[in-house]
Amino acid sequence: MSDPTDAELADRYRPRLLSEQAELAASSRATHDDRRPVELDQQSVGRLSRMDALQGQAMAKGLEARRMARGRAIAAALERITVGEFGWCEACGEFIGTRRLDVDPCATRCVACAR
């Protein structure tokens, strides 16, 4: 079986990457308030409640950092599609394989080089 063409790869993975990119942006907007600074209000928030709020804020910031990293990986994959380098291992130059790309279309290395 021959390797797919750049156009076939683009048709197969671009919509999925764009959809995931849009989902990440929507999730980021939806959780914006969770990442805002926790205000000190001695009247309505006790020490434990403030600690819970700070912990929630830290978790939201961590999740946003992971979203941003995934967003950068998606943008890089979309750029590789544009320039015709998508699906090819950055280390050895061999085709990554559709099974691996189906799992993660942002993959930049074949299974052998990823080990």
Rank of each mutant, 00 (worst) to 15 (best):
G97Y: 00
E85Q: 15
R72W: 08
R14W: 07
L63N: 14
C106V: 04
A91H: 12
V45E: 13
R14A: 15
T82G: 13
F86I: 02
C113W: 04
D52Q: 12
F86W: 05
A25G: 07
A58S: 11
D11C: 08
Q43A: 15
E39F: 10
C106R: 04
G62H: 06
E85H: 14
P15I: 00
I96Q: 02
Q55F: 09
A53C: 05
T82Q: 15
E79N: 08
R35P: 09
R66W: 06
L48V: 10
A7V: 11
G97W: 01
R66D: 12
T108Y: 10
V111G: 08
G62P: 03
D41H: 06
L40A: 14
L18F: 02
D102M: 06
Q55E: 15
A7P: 05
L101A: 07
A112P: 08
A58P: 02
V83I: 12
R36Y: 04
G87I: 02
L9G: 08
E79W: 05
D6S: 14
A65F: 10
C113Y: 04
P15V: 01
R70T: 03
E90K: 12
E20L: 08
L54F: 05
V45H: 11
A7F: 11
R16G: 10
A75G: 11
A7R: 13
A69F: 12
T5R: 01
L101D: 06
L24A: 00
G62M: 04
T31N: 14
R115D: 09
T98R: 15
T82M: 10
V45N: 09
G56W: 07
G71N: 03
D3K: 13
A77G: 01
L9W: 07
P105A: 04
G93A: 00
L17S: 02
E23L: 07
L54S: 07
D34E: 15
A26N: 07
A60I: 05
A73C: 06
E8S: 04
T5I: 00
K61N: 13
P15L: 02
R47L: 13
L78V: 06
G97R: 01
Q21K: 15
T5C: 02
I81D: 03
M1T: 11
G46S: 07
Q21S: 15
E90Q: 13
C113G: 05
Y13R: 01
T108P: 10
P105W: 00
G71R: 06
L54E: 15
V45C: 10
A76D: 12
L17T: 01
L24V: 00
D41I: 01
Y13F: 14
E64L: 06
S28E: 11
T82H: 14
A107H: 11
G84H: 05
A10I: 04
S49F: 04
E79P: 01
D6Y: 05
